[in-house]
Design a binder for these strands. Structure first.
Length: 163
DNA sequence: CGAATGATCCGA
DNA sequence: CGGATCATTCGA
């Protein structure tokens, strides 16, 4: 589960949809064209955040995975609120932009240690493999992009952006 | 479908 | 510098 501790409140949500991106061999990855100031966290140690700004209005949160000179990250695309959300807020965080918005994440939250920071990822009760669906990744440029079935989501969850 | 909306990156 | 691009979302 994803946890964000802010002064006065702690929000948590169950992660139900993710996509994997690898640098180097994955043309869809931001790291594909090498290290830049924006993508630097993807080349850093694993267990940190990589938050980027897209389409002039949305932020997306990734978990850096590879480390040791390799670039890789997992995009968090959907979650179900667990605690800390009040009634005015959406009951499902279906889509990476919505998820980041719900937690108030901006590029200031990039490159944070997701084990020790206010923004953290913690264990949650396991999801039975029979409920995990694997598919192609969403929203990638159709042309020249080798899309891999690296999207995982929980079947039937309200936090999934697209069935 | 297409607009909104701005950071980022590449090529010149 | 200019402009193409973009791991999105919402509304017609």
């Amino acid at each position: 589960m994803l946890v964000f501790e802010a002064p006065g409140s702690t929000k948590s949500a169950r992660i139900v949809e993710v996509e994997a991106y690898l640098g180097g061999r994955d043309p869809a990855s931001h790291a594909y064209r090498g290290l830049t100031p924006r993508t630097a966290p993807m080349f850093g140690p694993p267990g940190r955040s990589y938050v980027y700004f897209v389409y002039g209005m949305y932020h997306c949160l990734n978990v850096v995975t590879e480390g040791d000179g390799l670039a890789g990250a997992v995009l968090l695309r959907g979650a179900e609120p667990l605690a800390g959300f009040d009634e005015g807020e959406p009951r499902a965080l279906a889509g990476p932009g919505k998820l980041a918005r719900a937690f108030g994440l901006t590029t200031k939250h990039t490159n944070l240690d997701l084990v020790h920071s206010a923004l953290s990822i913690r264990d949650a009760p396991p999801i039975p493999p029979s409920r995990v669906v694997r598919s192609a990744r969403i929203g990638l440029n159709e042309h020249a992009t080798t899309n891999k079935p690296w999207r995982l989501c929980v079947r039937g969850s309200s936090g999934v952006s697209r069935p």
